[in-house]
Design a protein around this nucleic acid. Sequence first.
RNA 1: GCCCUCAUAGCUCAGUCGGUAGAGCGCGCCCUUGGUAAGGGCGAGGUCAUGGGUCCGAAUCCCAUUGGGGGCUCCA
Length: 603
Amino acid sequence: MSNQPEERYEDSQLYRIRHSAAHVMAQAVLEFYPEAKYTIGPPVENGFYYDFDLPEAITNEDLEKIEKRMRQIIAGGHAFVRKALSAEEARQIFSNQPYKLELIEGLEKGGLDEYGNPLAEKPEISIYQHDSFTDLCRGPHVENTRQINPSAIKLMSIAGAYWRGDEHNKMLTRIYGTAWKTPDDLKNYLKMLEEAKARDHRKLGKDLEIFIYEDEVGPGLPLWLPRGGVLIEELEKLAKEMEEKAGYFRVRTPHLAKEDLFLHSGHLPYYAESMYPPMELEGTKYYVKPMNCPMHHKIYGAKSHSYRDLPIRLAEYGTCYRYEKSGELFGLMRVRSMQMNDAHIYCAEEQFEQEFMGVIDLYKKYFDLFQIEKYVMRFSLHGKEGLGKKFVDNERLWLKTEEMVRQAMKNGNVPFVEVANEAAFYGPKIDVQIWSAIGREFTLATNQVDFAQPGRFNLVFMNRNGVEETPLCIHRAPLSTHERMVGFLLEHYAGNFPAWLSPEHARVIPITDNQNEYAEGIVRQLLEKGIRASADLSAQRMNAKIREAQLMKVPYMLVVGENEANAGQVSLRVRDGSRQDNIPLAEFIARARDRISTRSGQL
RNA sequence: GCCCUCAUAGCUCAGUCGGUAGAGCGCGCCCUUGGUAAGGGCGAGGUCAUGGGUCCGAAUCCCAUUGGGGGCUCCA
């Protein structure tokens, strides 16, 4: 750790290189498609993009062509020249570039940035010029195209993107590129992408037989295979243990409810589009539940409560269905059927901070267990504009609850960032961003403070003054959904699960079939001791059996030949390649049971 | 939902200019009884995603649909 303050990306040389590479790319594209309209091209994490309105679709072959031309332009050694000018002058330069004219208008009028967001102050209008290309741009850039290393750039992909990110606007063609200081940096980046691909939960999920999708079942509706079933069982066991210790009660609720319930909760008016359409029977409409909370509210409301009962914590691994739009589905990370590590905590206002921190503590325990080192709480606030539309219309309560959460996190020294306009409709939300072992960001856990629904459901408790009061409700899902959690864990561990999570703890590998019976006896003993085991009695050679177990990432392989059979021993091969030959079976059992029962990260 | 792209055996993939299909793995049988990441042989297995169209003839060309992927938008 250095004491130097970290340089902002926006101020770095890399940022300038990428920004300049975007301009060079735009020049190349315009040379091939002179009629193209160009829009914006900023640096982004790991690279840059530029959005064009092109007269025809371009292909990956075109990318090679464009990339080649970029290298020529770079070699030309052109200077980047900045010039400040008036809106009028800018309009003349970009007279045939409608998107640029729109940008100029935004800059001129009250200052809107390139994404259409308001700017604090009215900016100076400037252009940057190099070779034959001129762009409306605030910079900064490198001084000369030569400062872009032609062997450290690469065009990555073509994608669609809406003008100004608004789905009502025209779909533009976005070209993504990456640029680095040195060819080695580029190589490392590409290697990192390869690694990420090898860890992709969709690939590992298939290879390790965790889940599948079937066309006839439907998109976003995963089928969990036996090995995936084990992961889920273990996660539930973990959650139930932790929640029991933390004073939660377990409840169970149905998958469907009448329309009335979701009208009552306020979900239907806000989220009907994301719900499966209703089914109507005997004149009554039923909806498949998109979340569990309304049902938990009903359970809370089923009897009268005293302040002495609070907090009441209702937990359920509830199965929910949400109609995510087709283009939004993604492996296990975005699905239509999901099972949530859900719970609702009903508490009095003065209990809020303690309960809230109790949830955060739970998070931290899980982070510890899963060796998650980096996390940030994203604290999503309401937006004034959305009141009554996106958000429940009660600004006073919004501000009050937000302040409560803010204080709780400050007091608890929880790292968090605030994001405006992204709350849940019933209250402020905290999404937990975590980073996997290879540094990819995931949003898994979420919790929300709900000041709206308890009131809607007339949930009350009698306070110590004998006056009815409405409790607050904390929605929380530290382990997210099974789908997302397993997706994350697959990538995080690259499929090399700690023993307790491994679908198969041990595989017994007889060397010849003379040891098959001995192997089967071992399996029986292991199963008896709660160790998930099987024997490989196939006609293959031992080496092939080991390879197979290794590919399935089985943590413990027990090789048994004539010697072991005679001595009542096993040869232990651990997934990491280490070996312990000729140990008594009991010794292995003790080791495995210890690792499993403590949920150890060691094998 | 939108833009682009892809779909061949259970899996991973090959298939040229349009002439109705191949490999490896896996599966079954046989031989091999092997000491820490693939022993060998034989065999079964495909309406080339689905539905239309062009053509004497379509896995191959065109259109639509379904599903996957890269993005955008969205994610209570």
